[in-house]
């Protein structure tokens, strides 16, 4: 995952703060799961998972393929019954009060669940009606959400004519119709282009600004960093790390600045020059200078030092640790036996 280092134009509208809302309903937890177990035959999809989402915050559940993320979300949204354990969402027990619970949640599953034959607006209207909105309100709410997700133009077309990203957005809109207090998003941006991904992120942040609690699963550290306040990392059905995003970043290392030199031959000299200033830098196999950084000011310093010495710079990038690297740092072993992408440092 790499992002441009150009000063991020963060000012696109009101950017929601990632901090918990000040008018939080007390110290309450919106989602609390204890000892969740779910086995499918011999597969231990979940093997005693504890998880807590504080009211008004975003919890990122990070894990590789098959970690159990979807299974967890399905249990927390009453689609699946746990073999053992308890979970309370918005004050309602998943097993004893499923109907109440369903009124407080919205779910965007990993795979789109829209009716392909119906138009975008009909899809949303139907869900509004099933959520007991009066017909007029259901129409208005559908139009509002279509607008927000840039689907107004396609609103009248059957969903089967939508692109993958449009379906995803429609699915997200569908989960927001009832203004759920708790929103589950299962890999909401997998397969989306960067523009659409940003749209989804903004919408999630807006929901949080409006007071919703979000539980999202992802395979991308970058997404977790963008949206989440806290992180729970799971692997093979077990929680392997848990804490605030910042805390975990400390644990696994923050971003890495990657500098592409104009003259690769100068790489060792560049590294030496930074070392003089007490900045540790390494040369990667791919011919880049990798510098771990913890805040934006360091970026300026590094570039300044290199520029000051007259080294030519052909390009810069910052990389957030990939899921592989996070896993390596947390567990000492890679996520999958196959090709672990060459670690930057």
């Amino acid at each position: 995952m790499t992002t441009q280092t150009a000063p991020a134009p963060n000012g696109s509208g009101q950017q929601a703060s990632r901090a918990p809302r000040s008018h939080d309903a007390g110290p309450g937890n919106a989602v609390e799961a204890r000892g969740i177990v779910k086995h499918f035959g011999a597969t231990k999809a979940l093997d005693g998972v504890d998880l807590t989402v504080r009211q008004g915050t975003v919890l990122g559940v990070l894990g590789p393929n098959g970690a159990g993320k979807t299974t967890l979300i399905r249990i927390l949204s009453t689609l699946l019954k746990p073999d053992a354990g308890t979970a309370v969402v918005g004050g309602y027990d998943v097993l004893r009060q499923p109907r109440q619970l369903r009124r407080t949640i919205g779910l965007t599953g990993q795979y789109a669940s829209v009716d392909e034959l119906l138009s975008g607006s009909e899809n949303l209207y139907l869900i509004g009606r099933l959520l007991d909105l009066p017909a007029k309100q259901a129409k208005a709410r559908a139009a509002e959400l279509l607008e927000r997700f840039s689907l107004t133009e396609a609103a009248g077309r059957p969903a089967k004519t939508y692109s993958g990203g449009m379906r995803r957005r429609l699915d997200l809109a569908a989960s927001m119709i009832g203004r759920p207090r708790v929103l589950y998003l299962d890999e909401p941006t997998t397969g989306l282009d960067p523009r659409t991904r940003n749209e989804v992120w903004e919408e999630v942040q807006r929901m949080v600004a409006d007071g919703a609690t979000v539980l999202l699963t992802t395979q991308y550290m970058e997404e977790a960093e963008q949206l989440a306040t806290d992180l729970t990392v799971i692997d093979r059905g077990q929680v392997i790390a848990n804490g605030s995003v910042d805390g975990l970043k400390q644990q696994v290392g923050g971003r890495t600045l990657q500098v592409r030199p104009s003259h690769p031959a100068e790489l060792p000299a560049m590294a030496a020059c930074l070392a003089e200033r007490g900045i540790s830098a390494t040369v990667t196999d791919t011919g880049l200078l990798a510098v771990p950084i913890t805040d934006d000011a360091q970026l300026t310093v590094v570039i300044g030092v290199l520029g000051g010495r007259g080294f030519g710079i052909a390009g810069i990038d910052t990389a957030v640790p990939s899921l592989d690297e996070v896993f390596l740092a947390l567990t000492g072993r890679p996520t999958a036996p196959q090709t672990a992408e060459e670690a930057v440092r």
Binding site: T78, L79, R102, L107, D115, L130
Partner: peptide, 13 residues
């Protein structure tokens, strides 16, 4: 198969 049923099942109906 299309997941529409999953959507219905998360609704209070």
């Amino acid at each position: 198969k299309t997941g529409v049923m999953d959507r219905f099942r998360t609704l209070p109906i």
